[in-house]
Design a binder for these strands. Structure first.
Lengths: 148, 148
DNA sequence: TATCAAGTGGGAAAAAGTGGGAAATTTTAA
DNA sequence: TTAAAATTTCCCACTTTTTCCCACTTGATA
């Protein structure tokens, strides 16, 4: 399971070290996509196959016939990248994804069960401060809606 | 799987480089057609066969009126072109397709699972900015309909 | 203090993308 | 029908980006 928070440098070549603790589970290749909220999602190939199967949809209709589907697919596939983890554990973050979440200098790399998230470190810490305050409320809300 | 965003130059001879990452999957010949939402669709020959079968199959459940289907098929088939990828990975975009989406200088070339889309780069980025704002909603909407 | 693992930085080689000239082909006009 | 003009195709060369490899730094451990 992927857990924990790591703050790593992003260098001028757009490289970031994956935390050593994540490497085994992630394997050699990963998929990096825009996430929801201002972060990126990193999936293992296996996990991505599950996700993309669900995205590409319904049996044998042509997915491009529905406007909503087109928009969302463009967003998730069009702005995704298959990335290799290099021999010493680094990945390359494509510019278009880096720009999307305002990455520079430092990235917060977060394990969230079966995926990894990448945040601008400042945004991450602000976000956490905010969540901290509501954590109690959130737990109750979730608890009510699907019996946590 | 075709994924990712690439911004490439379109030169005075109407040539554009296919992203190197797409070339293997696309093969030597491709079909380029007008797409939906001010872009062009590029299919592999194989994928095109699937698509055209589904579009022309009267048994399918496209929820189109017949007359509409005819019009749509004229649109997709009538203005499609078979194009070769040259020895260094470039394609030629026919003028009538180029004009249709206002291509000049820079093209955004997008992998969307099993097709490639070609956009005017400005139009693409505006489009994505808009989608970005609704991504959460869209995810929930699609998530409800087929349990993302 | 020596050693090892993890993270960071940078140079050199390779690959990808871009531009343009010349040959081949097609079109146009006499 | 032929020659000139225009367009298309093929090939080469330059520039930029990416990839690969090596080395340094830091911090934890024995």
């Amino acid at each position: 399971m992927l857990i924990g928070e790591y703050i790593h440098t992003i260098d001028e070549k757009n490289r970031v070290s994956m935390p050593a603790k994540f490497r085994k589970e992630l394997g050699k290749k990963i998929i990096i996509t825009p996430g929801l909220d201002s972060c990126l999602f990193i999936f293992t190939i296996k996990e991505w196959e599950k996700v993309s199967k669900k995205l590409s949809d319904s049996e044998n209709d042509l997915s491009f016939l529905k406007a909503d589907q087109r928009s969302f697919n463009r967003y998730m596939f069009g702005r995704a990248a298959e990335v290799e983890i290099d021999s010493i554990g680094r990945i390359l973050i494509p510019d278009f994804l880096k720009d999307r979440i305002g990455l520079k200098d430092k990235a917060a790399i977060i394990g969230v069960e079966d995926r990894v998230e990448v945040w601008n470190d400042k945004v991450w810490s602000q976000n956490q401060e905010a969540v901290e305050k509501q954590a109690g409320e959130l737990a109750e809300k979730l608890g009510n809606s699907h019996s946590l």
